[in-house]
Amino acid sequence: MKLFNLSQQHIIPAEEADPVSLAELKEHPEAAYAVALEPDESAEALRPFLAQITLVVLHFPIFRDGRAFTQARSLREYEDYKGEIRVTGHVLPDQAAFLRRCGVDTVVLPDDDDQTEWEAQLKRFTITYQQSIAS
């Protein structure tokens, strides 16, 4: 697996990240710095731990399931989270700009994935019609 960097922020290398689940985080908050949220878990649940968290991983069970967009935007907007947001699962390069604009930094891709389509999609739209967390 490899990472595609949407935001050009400093990121945590793929091999270093070892996210715990929200339940594990609640049980053993000591030392945890990376957490994986399921699509039905709210960003707000992370609030007590965000001071120590530097990586939140969100999951797309299928690319059509857009809950991670709301989770990511909530983390940035409501929780003022500044660390890395990463997405895993089934995502399409066609979603690159949406992900970035909702505050996602990185996408986990299979090793053989062609990143040129992701690069192209990020540059595709010069015009947007809404304000967003990131441009």
Binding site: T70, Y129, S132
Partner: peptide, 10 residues
């Protein structure tokens, strides 16, 4: 506002 809204397209 609704055109290619980043959060509400899926």
């Amino acid at each position: 506002w609704s055109t290619l809204h980043p959060e509400f397209t899926f």
